[in-house]
Amino acid sequence: MLAWLITADVITVDGAFVTAQQYSEKVRIWSPDGTSAVLGDMGGLRCLGGTRVGGRTLIIAGGSGVKVWDAADGTEAGHVDTRGHDVTALGSADIDGRRVLVTSGNDGVLRIWDESDLA
């Protein structure tokens, strides 16, 4: 059984659960046996997503910016400078043969980021 926590979001990536914990601002990856590892902290943590870029599965967290982790080994793979815009929702898609990240925030504006923005 998974431990109790206040959750902002839950996704599944490659057979594991990933949670965004409110108040502690931690992104955790959970194995099927209920053990977990903290991937990192995210200020203002609001949402999670997963995507594949360049053959890698990535975990993406939004809040006061965007952070990215490699799902295979849990290492931080980059971030997106959202230029001061808080992120409350995110997703990814293929547009014209390229992978993009789409974010939205309290201002209601959709922003599209190219995979090269995952610096």
Rank of each mutant, 00 (worst) to 15 (best):
E76K: 06
L118C: 07
V53R: 02
R46V: 11
G15F: 03
G43E: 13
T19I: 00
N106Q: 07
T75S: 10
V100P: 00
L5G: 07
M1E: 08
V68E: 02
Y23I: 09
V68F: 15
Q21K: 14
A119Y: 13
R52K: 08
V68S: 03
A119Q: 06
C47V: 09
V68Y: 12
S64G: 14
G34V: 06
S92H: 15
S24N: 08
V18K: 13
A89N: 11
S24R: 14
W113S: 01
M42T: 14
S92G: 14
G105P: 08
G44S: 08
L58G: 00
K26G: 01
I11G: 15
W4F: 03
W113T: 06
A3T: 12
T88K: 03
G44W: 15
I59A: 03
T88H: 01
R28K: 15
I112A: 12
D96T: 15
R46N: 11
I6Q: 09
K67N: 14
V102F: 05
G55S: 10
E76H: 03
L45T: 13
G15H: 10
L5T: 13
M42C: 02
R56D: 01
S64E: 13
G44C: 04
W30T: 07
D114C: 15
R83A: 14
G50Y: 02
G65D: 09
L5Y: 10
V13F: 05
N106Y: 10
T12N: 04
D73S: 04
D117F: 06
Q21G: 03
I11F: 02
N106E: 09
G43V: 03
I59N: 02
L90F: 05
E25V: 09
L48S: 15
E76W: 14
R99F: 11
G84H: 12
R99V: 15
L2A: 13
I60A: 02
M42Q: 13
A119M: 08
T88M: 00
I112T: 14
V18W: 09
P32A: 12
E115V: 08
L45Y: 05
D114I: 11
R28H: 07
V53N: 00
G44K: 04
G50A: 12
R99E: 01
M42Y: 06
T51G: 01
R83V: 06
Y23A: 00
G65A: 13
W30V: 10
V13I: 12
L101Q: 04
G62S: 15
V18A: 08
V80Y: 14
I29H: 07
R28I: 00
F17P: 01
G91I: 13
G78N: 03
A16F: 00
R99G: 01
G97A: 07
G54C: 09
D33Q: 05
